[in-house]
Amino acid sequence: MLSAVLNAAALGAALLLLVAGLGHLRERRLFLATLRAQRLLSPRLHVPVSLLTPATELLAGALTVTTVLLPALPRPLLLPQTTLYLAFTAYLAILVRTRPGTPCGCFNARSPATWATVLRAALAALATLATTFVPPVPGPWLLPALAAGVLLALTTWLAPSLR
């Protein structure tokens, strides 16, 4: 049961990365403008980061979805997602601390980064890391874990927006 819960959480986090990555690709100029508004990176890095971030989000999310759905794959394929969420946690924590009210850039570039977005990234990192050390979802639990992952992704996407 714990395996199914953790795999569902990692899957939900992966779905968030896929949505974010597609959004960043679709709205490349907006994402670039958000990075510039955040003023945390050197201006020379804005364009490369605006291109690499969506590619990394899509790759890490796809690896996690595939690993959860295909139990024969090695569990360390979840580590790119863990690493990416840890990087997001650190970046967002610095952003919230040094530039409160600055756009997050997570899904809607106009929404400010908050401690809730930092917590969302940290929990996604921890859930994905923990999933690396548990067995794959047992066959009968796969569909419920998938449904729970989708529900979790939707909930955590909306939760930081609630006031």
Rank of each mutant, 00 (worst) to 15 (best):
T117D: 03
L119P: 01
L123I: 11
P103Q: 09
L95P: 02
L86R: 02
Y91F: 15
R110K: 12
Y91P: 00
L123T: 09
W115G: 01
P103G: 15
T102P: 00
F88K: 01
W115R: 13
L95Y: 12
R99D: 08
W115I: 03
A90L: 15
C106N: 07
L126C: 15
C104H: 04
A130L: 15
C106D: 12
L119K: 02
A93H: 11
L123G: 04
A127Q: 09
V118C: 12
T98F: 10
P103S: 03
T98V: 04
N108A: 15
L119T: 14
R120V: 09
A122I: 08
C106V: 10
T98Y: 07
L126I: 14
V134Q: 09
A116C: 07
A127I: 06
A90V: 15
T114G: 05
A127E: 08
A130F: 09
A109I: 02
T132W: 02
A87K: 04
L126K: 08
L119R: 10
V118H: 03
A124Y: 00
W115V: 02
W115F: 05
T131R: 01
P112H: 06
A90Y: 14
T114V: 06
A109Q: 11
C104G: 00
A122Y: 09
T102N: 00
L123S: 11
